[in-house]
Design a protein around this nucleic acid. Structure first.
Lengths: 227, 227
DNA sequence: ATAATAGTGTCTGTCAGACATTATGCG
DNA sequence: CGCATAATGTCTGACAGACACTATTAT
């Protein structure tokens, strides 16, 4: 048996086999867009141990044996950001980063994921910064954020689970404008956005109007259909 | 230190740490579309060892420590399909599959990749089947193919590296119709496809005409601009 | 009234699908 | 000529960007 093909004779009981692999970490781009946030916020935390100790980083964990990616993504959020599990509204997969030297401890893949965090009593274990103003982070995390932003922008108004989790089930039209502006960069035409939203299945405008700025015409309230 | 956060105290010299992770395999959707192929062919091979021995499967290997995903994808193609490395024209990442029970040896992630195989003296170590007629395969490989097809269809005419590798640098328009029909399902309107191709940067039609069917008008030859 | 904000309507150009028409070859 | 195949042209509807106009509120 050639060493070229370890998978064929892999003995699952022998940890040395699998130890010949790169490690796998899950790093999460955790977003929130609460009522009093006026931009999309990114959750980061100061590293308490390991390399880059004391530096800011995305919440991440080593993949646990037998775990689903989404579950380990949630675990990263809970343990590193201090966010209660119930506040994690949605999770999804992005891409895998494979630069061999991205982690000083040795070769480590990073499977990037996105998550949306709902409102909860903030224990401030996490640091929340505007998504477009993230500071210098540990590892290649700034690169992860950069590449993820385009993917997240594409999800807005197309991935309904993502969008609904981020903006909520009921929201004034103005919120939609702001959210789109942040993720896509540059404010959208409000008329065009209204048109696009009205064509979305599962989303409709209500008769309710709401005042968001102290002056001016109140905004219409949009709502996702109950699931 | 909680066992919840093994990444923080991970000692790279200790293989037992990383052995607590799921294994990671690279499984490749290897495609070819040679001159005498009249559909896109998928490369599969009979498993000679391990679980599902004797069954057909996508070429796959265990991720090797410190390797780039693309390099290990190429290694899977070389070792499992017998394709010379020089014939691998392009490789790219698709998605990661994480069902914990997809491999009987234990929890194993599968990072799915695509690859395009160029013409070479076929040693017939590989079995080539039409992409839309793949037989029952080992593991969850049929599912991988199903989910990959949509992604591959989206890459056609948008991911130029993928498209160019698959159809070649010079090709009659009829080939483009056939390729699009296979990947997208259902033949495209030839007029619309011509229009789309003429708008593609890096692709242009030549004055050359070529007979592909024995009867009828000869087809125009299209060519990618030299890189 | 005026300013500030929100929503509507319209015009434009782009683009994809569909289809009819023309072109090029062979027997 | 008739047949098979390939290419062109045109029509339509969907849709996005841009922008002008109208609507609703506070001061």
């Amino acid at each position: 048996v050639q060493p070229d093909e370890p998978d064929e004779w892999r003995d699952d009981a022998d940890p040395a086999q699998v130890a010949q692999q790169s490690a796998v970490s899950i790093d999460v781009v955790a977003l929130r867009f609460w009522h009093d946030d006026d931009t999309v916020m990114l959750g980061i935390a100061r590293r308490e141990r390991g390399p880059y100790r004391g530096r800011l980083a995305l919440p991440g964990v080593l993949l646990r044996r037998g775990a689903r990616l989404a579950d380990d993504g949630r675990r990263a959020i809970v343990t590193k950001l201090g966010v209660p599990a119930a506040a994690i509204l949605a999770v999804g997969q992005l891409v895998t980063f494979d630069e061999p030297n991205r982690d000083p401890r040795g070769p480590t893949l990073s499977i990037a994921m996105w998550a949306v965090i709902g409102e909860h009593a903030d224990k401030t274990a996490a640091l929340w910064v505007p998504l477009d103003e993230s500071p210098i982070l540990a590892f290649d995390h700034n690169r992860i954020i950069d590449e993820s932003r385009a993917l997240l922008a594409a999800k807005l108004w197309t991935d309904l689970a993502f969008t609904r989790a981020l903006i909520g089930t009921r929201f004034p039209a103005t919120r939609a404008v702001k959210l789109t502006a942040v993720l896509r960069g540059g404010r959208p035409d409000p008329g065009n956005l209204n048109r696009a939203m009205s064509l979305l299945p599962g989303l409709h405008r209500t008769d309710e109007r709401v005042r968001v700025k102290s002056t001016g015409r109140p905004a219409a309230v949009w709502a996702f259909d109950p699931r």
